[in-house]
Design a protein around this nucleic acid. Sequence first.
DNA 1: CGCATAGTTGACTACGCTCAACCCTGGTGG
DNA 2: CCACCAGGGTTGAGCGTAGTCAACTATGCG
Lengths: 204, 204
Amino acid sequence: MDLLTVDRLPPILRSAIATRQLVAGQRLFRQGDSASAVFVIESGRLKIVRNTEEGKPITIEIARAGESFAESALFSEFYSYTAIAEVTSEVIAYPKQPLLSTLRDRPDLAEDFMTLLVRKNNALIVDLELQSIKAAHRRVLQYLQYLVGSSDSKVVSFDRPLKDVAGEIGLNPATLSRALTRLENEGAIARELNSIILQDFSAA
Amino acid sequence: MDLLTVDRLPPILRSAIATRQLVAGQRLFRQGDSASAVFVIESGRLKIVRNTEEGKPITIEIARAGESFAESALFSEFYSYTAIAEVTSEVIAYPKQPLLSTLRDRPDLAEDFMTLLVRKNNALIVDLELQSIKAAHRRVLQYLQYLVGSSDSKVVSFDRPLKDVAGEIGLNPATLSRALTRLENEGAIARELNSIILQDFSAA
DNA sequence: CGCATAGTTGACTACGCTCAACCCTGGTGG
DNA sequence: CCACCAGGGTTGAGCGTAGTCAACTATGCG
């Protein structure tokens, strides 16, 4: 994602951005905080979660280096979710007002920004589709297929514990574990240390 | 939603828009069709669905008079979902290219459009949150509370069969029925013809 | 008056969640 | 260098409940 790269920005915005360091577990902002900036990740990984009225927080998105988050801050007064650093991370903050006026002045950046919003939209729709699959093993398989995408590698290795992955796709660690063994027994995947290999004879 | 009202539009776009009539059940476009336009509903109601790889189609959104849909068409080559008229409807089509160049020329419209995209995003997040509630009766209650929002009326009446509502929130008609009677027994709601009255002593 | 569709209810099944025990690994400290 | 510990992963047992199928009722329309 090459949006909001520094050298394309006008001086007004360029002088307004600031970087912030985060340690693992640190919260960048909390649901309900006043929305002050949009962020792009320089390094590390952030988790965007939303605390539902029942206890359980749900994961909206996992953002990694090069990705942005909290775009909705531009048009909302408060953040509607919480951003937590999963590992030591560095983020760039683009303050709301300067960014807004930049987008007004620069149609090319505005268009990029819209593209970005549409992508987020699509990602959320994919999530919804995933959640709609009730059977755990099918949901997991779909998720894995989505991760490898159209790449030819067919190998997935996670950079975080399986229990976190489970949370992301709305499953229990125990249920995820069972789903994986089931997929393995059915021959849909093979496991190996930290990696999962998708066997392709795709649809069934 | 006052976005894209005709009198704010430049002539280039104004002359490019066209209205289309749809009868109940008619598909405006299908998942995979070439993305040619963004739409706004003049009258009626459209359902946006996505066909998952398993059989079951899922409802992404219900769009009503005054609302827009298929914004992602602007930045995608194909529609990633299907639009079906639920009742006789009239929509205005804003062709992709003229709309794109208008957004480039008119920062005010571009900003409105971004606001709109962010709202869609938030709506999807609300959906995700809803789906994360496993217990049917709790999910239904949350949905009803979301529908009445901050209004003081506390009354919900649906303009479409309950079985469609069930599909929208990811439940079975039978399960929804049971959930409603359970909520009624617990005193959380009261039912009356086509209406549902929320009893407020909100959280429990 | 009858047909079609929606809503409700019952019986049954399947499966995801919870709790808990166990294994395994990596890291720490004696 | 080994003993211990902590956390993640796996596995078992049992429970609750959403899904399915099906029957029955109620409603609206031709």
